[in-house]
Design a binder for these strands. Sequence first.
DNA 1: GGTTACACGTGACAC
DNA 2: TGTGTCACGTGTAAC
Lengths: 228, 228
Amino acid sequence: MLQPENYNLDYYHYMATGEYNLDFPVTKSYSTCSFYNPEEEEEEDEANNIAVSKNIIHKEAERRRRERINSHLNQLRTLLPANSKIDKASLLAKVVQRVRDLKEQTSKIMQCETNFPSENDEITVLSNDSSADGKLLIKASICCEDRFDLIPDLIQTLKSLRLSPMRAEMVTLGGRIRNVIILAPDKDYTNKSLLFLRDALMSIIQRSSSGNDQRGKRRRVLDQRIAN
Amino acid sequence: MLQPENYNLDYYHYMATGEYNLDFPVTKSYSTCSFYNPEEEEEEDEANNIAVSKNIIHKEAERRRRERINSHLNQLRTLLPANSKIDKASLLAKVVQRVRDLKEQTSKIMQCETNFPSENDEITVLSNDSSADGKLLIKASICCEDRFDLIPDLIQTLKSLRLSPMRAEMVTLGGRIRNVIILAPDKDYTNKSLLFLRDALMSIIQRSSSGNDQRGKRRRVLDQRIAN
DNA sequence: GGTTACACGTGACAC
DNA sequence: TGTGTCACGTGTAAC
């Protein structure tokens, strides 16, 4: 019979070793304070055994759960910059911050996706209103299948139209390319130049689409732009 | 005096309300099983009060700790794709995987850093040996301060040298630019063409370095390349 | 019923 | 000393 005096000793031993050979948990210990009743001992022991074995199962399940959680926590510890000995809450706070930072970084990259070449061939040609500052600029964008001689083709086309590229952005992805070019026209610029440019770019696209055998020879490269 | 019979009731009430108005924890409950001793009651109550207040402090500290941890856990839940109702272990497993993925993605981006423009002006000019397949190509690389008319300048320079760009990669970062251009020379190519090209590129760099007033006008853009 | 996950109070340990 | 963190066993609810 468990005596109140040795409770602590037994409890400590129980806590230290994990052995469950006495009538814990507390609910059972309380029943030891009631009067001794011989004819109830057997069924009581039976109930004890059931309860004890249940508690063992429960206890070990909970231990496994703790181990699972702590295992992941330790994995997170190794993923963070070397301060491996911080408490759980601070660790999780750092993880939250890290995931937020990485997500922001990723979204920053992804927001440039509008400049990635799309699946559809596209041409945009637009010019600013030169009446304001008198400096006319044309922004031309072409998105099409890539081919190894597309850039020289494009340059030759622009030269024949007397359009000087002031700035160019090239993004190639998955065998397709998007070029955005800022052009400065010569003095003999007319309103029809935009239409000529548009037609010329369309013919470039057609040359890319028809020459399927030359497609995809260029190394697939992803050019991403991140605004500072 | 706490009776064994109402232990569960009281305990449940205690668990449900968090009120700590009876002599819990278990160690104290055990002492209620010992013989009643009037002259010890006062100091025992004193000890009880101290122990109870200590336990209250301890209990609430632990509660705050749990709340802190669970708060961060819930923050992590909101950061993951909408499955907000998963258990802690699975949540942490997903977080581990997510951090790993994002780290890998970041390192993938960072490994392209060798193509970022460096702090120092650089020129490399090299050609393949055309004796193998008879097709001569020149790879020219220039890294310098960026300026808004550098691309037209470069194109004009290459045109005057009768070098046709077959392919170009442009990376601009922090006001500096690196251009890598694959060039196809005309028939009248001589061994001196490489030296001419090198000198021409150097003069371009000097024009960029001297014209400090025009520096940095171009929007700072980071073009990153990720090989598939 | 069995299993699973969770919150809780508690003893132990560290600083 | 206390103040904070941890692992543990347990009661409870959901499925």
